[in-house]
Simulated scan of single mutants.
Amino acid sequence: MHLLIFETDIKSKKKVKALKSVFNKHSDILKWSVDIEDIDNVLRIEATTNITEADIINMVQIHGFYIKTLTY
């Protein structure tokens, strides 16, 4: 398992809901959350090692959202 953390422009519950089915259906994503209270609207994903940062970025961008990897 690894942890992936991103800055996004997902700023509302409605926008989180738009990605819910995408993330919940993906077998390599074990757990995910978006902190819409944080200034960076942090997307945090716990995933298997079969999925990469680039995979997540592509999934989010396809749905019209900004996303950038955050280093921690």
Score class of each variant (00 low, 15 high):
D28W: 02
K11M: 08
V60K: 02
I51C: 05
W32K: 06
A47R: 00
F23C: 01
D9H: 09
F65Q: 07
L19S: 07
A54H: 09
K25F: 11
N50G: 06
I62D: 14
Y72F: 12
G64V: 02
T48W: 03
V16K: 12
L70C: 03
S27L: 12
A54F: 05
R44M: 10
N50Y: 04
V42T: 15
I67G: 04
S12P: 00
E37Q: 14
K20R: 13
V60E: 02
H2A: 07
D40T: 10
N41A: 09
L43W: 06
S12H: 07
Y66V: 05
M59V: 00
V42Q: 08
E7I: 04
V60R: 01
F65M: 02
A18I: 08
K14L: 11
Y66W: 06
K14Q: 13
V60Q: 06
E7S: 14
M59P: 00
D35G: 03
K68Q: 15
D28Q: 10
L4H: 04
K17P: 01
D35A: 06
D40S: 12
R44I: 11
T48K: 08
L30V: 11
I29H: 05
E46T: 11
Y66S: 06
F6S: 00
D35P: 03
V22F: 04
T49I: 11
H63Q: 15
I56Q: 01
A54R: 10
I45C: 03
A47E: 03
K11C: 09
K17I: 08
L19V: 06
D40K: 14
S12Y: 06
V22K: 07
E37G: 12
K17G: 00
Y66H: 09
I51F: 06
I57S: 05
I62V: 15
Y66T: 09
I57C: 02
K17T: 11
L4A: 09
D28N: 10
T52W: 01
I39R: 11
K25G: 15
K68I: 00
I29P: 02
D38L: 09
K14R: 14
N24R: 06
F23G: 01
E53I: 00
K14I: 12
T48P: 01
I56Y: 02
T8Y: 02
N58F: 02
K31N: 12
A47N: 04
W32G: 03
D9W: 09
I67M: 07
V60G: 06
S33M: 05
H26D: 14
F65D: 07
L70Y: 08
N24G: 00
D40H: 13
S27A: 12
H26M: 05
A47K: 05
I57L: 02
H26G: 01
A47T: 13
V60D: 09
V16N: 04
H26W: 08
L19E: 03
K11P: 00
S21N: 13
L30S: 08
K15R: 13
I62E: 14
I67S: 08
T52I: 03
H26E: 13
D38S: 14
T69C: 11
N58S: 13
Y66R: 04
